[in-house]
Simulated assay, not measured.
Amino acid sequence: GKWQKWSFDMFAGSDIHGATLGIIGMGRIGQGIAKRGAHGFGMKVIYHNRSRLDASLEAECKATYASKEELLKTADHVVLVVPYSAASHHTIGAAELALMKPTATLVNIARGGIVDDAALAVALREQRIAAAGLDVFEGEPKVHPDLLTVPNVVLTPHIASATVPTRKAMAGLAADNLIAFFTGKGPLTPVTPVAAK
């Protein structure tokens, strides 16, 4: 229908081959996105993070560190991959959206609240950025009603891991952690670092 065609057209019009990919948050997932963008699509990758990566890791990801302002001004596609905290609340608001190119896209796969959804809806409606893709929302499970009125946004539930192989791997990792813990080896993937004994 009309909405599916618009969704395809808004992203198809902005070629990713050779485009500049801006990643905010360069942890494990951000690094994976950087590698795929640089190696798979020949994208120029810039990133912003609380701390700069080691030079060897930057080279592996083919990524260059940039200030948040520089990233927003130059990236053709901005991807958000930061954890939610008081410090990251509204990392992208009206001021940040105003820095972006009118041809740029914004993708939030991190957490709701990282983006000011009301400000994003205004920027999309006024075509100050070209498009957005969101699978997380501020105030979940509700979606800001203004986002439902703009045609240049794709909204999906946060279900990227909802495949049978991924869910089996997640369950297996949880079981392996329990077994390691109860056999005295300690958790394999602790949420917080385990203090040395």
Score class of each variant (00 low, 15 high):
Gln4Val: 14
Trp6Lys: 14
Trp6Arg: 14
Phe8Leu: 12
Met10Phe: 15
Ser14Asp: 12
Gly18Cys: 09
Ala19Leu: 06
Ala19Gly: 09
Gly25Thr: 10
Gly25Glu: 04
Gly25Arg: 09
Met26Phe: 13
Arg28Val: 05
Lys35Met: 15
Arg36Phe: 14
His39Glu: 15
His39Lys: 15
His39Asn: 15
Gly40Arg: 14
Met43Pro: 02
Val45Lys: 11
Ile46Phe: 11
His48Asp: 13
Ser51His: 15
Asp54Lys: 10
Glu60Val: 10
Ala63Ser: 12
Ala63Lys: 10
Ala63Thr: 12
Thr64Lys: 14
Thr64Ser: 15
Tyr65Asn: 10
Ser67Arg: 05
Leu71Ile: 11
Leu71Trp: 11
Leu72Ala: 03
Ala75Arg: 10
Val81Trp: 04
Val82Arg: 08
Tyr84Trp: 05
Ala86Phe: 03
Ala86Arg: 13
Ser88Gly: 09
His90Asn: 13
His90Arg: 10
Thr91Leu: 15
Ile92Trp: 01
Glu96Met: 08
Glu96Arg: 04
Met100Val: 02
Met100Gln: 03
Lys101Val: 06
Pro102Asp: 06
Ala104Cys: 10
Ala104Gln: 02
Thr105Leu: 15
Leu106Ser: 10
Arg111Gly: 03
Gly113Val: 07
Val115Phe: 04
Ala118Thr: 01
Ala121His: 01
Val122Asn: 00
Arg128Thr: 11
Asp135His: 01
Val136Tyr: 00
Glu138Leu: 06
Glu138Ala: 03
Gly139Leu: 06
Glu140Val: 05
Glu140Leu: 07
Lys142Asn: 07
Pro145Ser: 01
Asp146Lys: 14
Asp146Met: 05
Leu148Lys: 10
Thr149Phe: 00
Val150Cys: 08
Asn152Pro: 02
Asn152Lys: 11
Val153Gly: 04
Leu155Ile: 10
Leu155Trp: 06
Leu155Cys: 08
Thr156Cys: 15
Pro157Trp: 03
His158Arg: 04
Ala160Pro: 09
Ala160Gly: 15
Ala160Thr: 07
Thr163Cys: 07
Val164Glu: 13
Val164Leu: 11
Arg167Asp: 01
Lys168Tyr: 04
Met170Ala: 06
Ala171Ser: 12
Ala171Trp: 00
Ala171Arg: 01
Gly172Ala: 12
Leu173Ser: 09
Leu173Glu: 03
Ala174Leu: 05
Ala174Gly: 06
Asp176Val: 02
Asp176Gln: 10
Ile179Ser: 07
Ile179Thr: 07
Thr189Glu: 00
Pro190Ser: 11
Val191His: 00
Thr192Tyr: 10
Lys197Ile: 07
Lys197Leu: 08
